[in-house]
Design a protein around this nucleic acid. Structure first.
Lengths: 190, 190
DNA sequence: AGAACATGCATCACCCATGACGCAACTAAC
DNA sequence: GTTAGTTGCGTCATGGGTGATGCATGTTCT
């Protein structure tokens, strides 16, 4: 996370953002991409990347931390008192919005940083709580294995976020509906 | 694919198998693992790996080709005349069996080799045909988007193959049932 | 406008994975 | 048992990514 004691100047902050966005773009296409390629995509010299992120690991960690915070914000904005099905839809749409732009960073395992790990754990807890509410309210079957449900849910979100076929709905809301109808009703004939 | 003009001697063939299995094991844990690590896991000198697979790319390609053939065999063994639901269950169980042992190799995009690409295309075609039969038979809803269905199906198989929690069913058959009930019925209250 | 900060560029050193040989010891195949 | 193939080991060359530094040229902030 780029929070050195001395606050960054405005242009430097812009540079950091540009580097993170470029890293997401380049690494999602090729996870083994070099610092050089990332720098080029960011429109910046390679040495500048090293100035902001001492090592490659540091860049990866910062990228993951950034995505984790977006992820957290997407989930946090959903009120705990909203009915489960509505809350699920809101959270799904928000997460999809983030995931479309930060797909690589959200999948990359950057839990070596304790702060990022904490955020991930918090999101996980919120997700679990929401699923428990959903099960208690009868949205999910009473005998549902919540761990399996969560895995399936994440997987569906991932598919909905990466699907780019003509037939796929464009807006996050429509995709969220697709995810939830598939999760709850399946694709078979009732 | 290890098919040089001259057939390999028995011990050499064993070595190739050991290297491929080690590569799967090591690379699934760390996709950026070195040839050295793979060789060590295979109980073989690094130079021997290079003797069998000239370059790292060649090893990856061979690994993917091997997995693709296993994949193909798992799908091919299901008769085209079997009722769709039964066929789905058989194919799913077979694929899960393979995927548990060759998870990395099946995900790695090794379609640069035309032969492997052909096999993958063939498997895809069979999957599509099976899904069309399922839809025609009323197993899938008549308005189902088959592309979305296939994506969800693959994703569920992936989750079922990588789930290693105590609550998860152990046998491929039981996991196949989990995949199919989730795919067809979803997890919501009917 | 002046001070502090940021960037590009050129340059350097370093490490490590990769890939290639040759040779001696061994093993399968006939 | 002879022959051809296989392996381990030591060795070497090379490329490429990484990380650090100094300096001149902008840019921001006050």
């Amino acid at each position: 996370m780029p929070t050195p004691p001395r606050p960054l100047r405005a242009d430097a902050e812009r540079t950091v953002r540009a580097i993170l966005e470029a890293a997401e773009r380049v690494l999602s296409a090729n996870p083994a991409a070099t610092m050089e390629q990332i720098a080029e995509a960011a429109g910046v010299a390679r040495t500048t990347v090293h100035r902001r992120f001492a090592t490659r690991e540091a860049l990866l960690a910062a990228l993951c931390a950034w995505a984790a915070r977006q992820f957290h914000a997407a989930v946090e904005s959903v009120s705990d008192s909203t009915p489960p099905l509505v809350a699920l839809h809101q959270a799904t749409a928000n997460v999809l919005q983030v995931k479309i732009s930060w797909g690589f960073a959200m999948n990359a395992a950057g839990d070596d940083d304790p702060e990022t790990a904490r955020i991930h754990a918090d999101v996980l807890a919120r997700c679990d709580a929401l699923f428990q509410r959903a099960r208690a309210a009868g949205v999910l079957r009473p005998d549902t294995d919540l761990d399996w449900a969560r895995r399936v849910y994440y997987a569906l979100i991932h598919e909905a976020a990466t699907a780019d076929r003509p037939g796929t709905p464009a807006t996050p809301e429509a995709r969220a509906t697709l995810v939830l109808t598939t999760l709850l009703n399946g694709l078979g004939t009732p």
